[in-house]
Amino acid sequence: MATSDKDMLVQFLLRMGDNSLILGHRVSEWCGHAPVLEEDIALANTALDLIGQTQFWLGYAAEVMDGDKTADDVAFLRDVWNFRNILLVELPNGDFGQTLMRQFLFDAYQSILLPRLSKSSDPRVAEIAEKASKECAYHVERSADTVVGLGDGTEESHARMQAALDRLWPYVGEMFASDDIDAAMAAAGIAPDPASLRSEYDALVGKVMAEATLTIPQSDFAHKGGRSGKTHTEHLGHLLTQMQWLQRAYPGASW
């Protein structure tokens, strides 16, 4: 593999792995604090699946980068500017409604992307995606159900879900903003061009929001920068401060 191809693949793997790492971390913050025990347990399962997927994506990224690195090195020893997750997943949890809305907006994307990745020309990518897509099929079913239930629940739950959708919608567009890395992945048959997934995504999200009696905002303005690494929100630095604390404070220790 030529160096630039290798770099491109690494960037792609970081995008996948950082999304699941950062979202998994956010969801894990709920453990012990959810509205009801059953939801507490379900959210922990989601977080566990996401962090499990992270090990595969970042583990593969580490291998391609340099044989000696591990998924942990990649997760715990990079700084903000080297993260490639979309901004959506690093936003603070907000209330339970905002967390579940974010989860659904992400799950919906993954539920369309992962089955395609399972046919990737890169066998490792295909293998990871195959497993992740089984988990995601359940995640999206559950988060969609919850969004519908709360959107079409009480007046208060409806208002909170609409507020969550309004708050998060500007972060949806970034998932589909293709760049030269996406073009290279598509050309090599490794991953689809994300822009090509948009109509299927809009159909799925449109259907669920209609059932949830929620209105998708008119504006398609999109905050960007996380995937490309150009910028992040201020929130990511604080998240990493916590997540990476032990590894940074005691370099070289084994845990």
């Binding site: 009801v36 079409d152 629940g153 208060e156 739950s157 909170r160």
Partner: peptide, 17 residues
């Protein structure tokens, strides 16, 4: 806090059901 903040969620999902 978890209980109070979660009240609208429990009520919302039940109302939908």
């Amino acid at each position: 806090k978890a209980w109070d903040d979660g009240a609208w969620v429990r009520d919302g999902l039940l109302a939908h059901a």
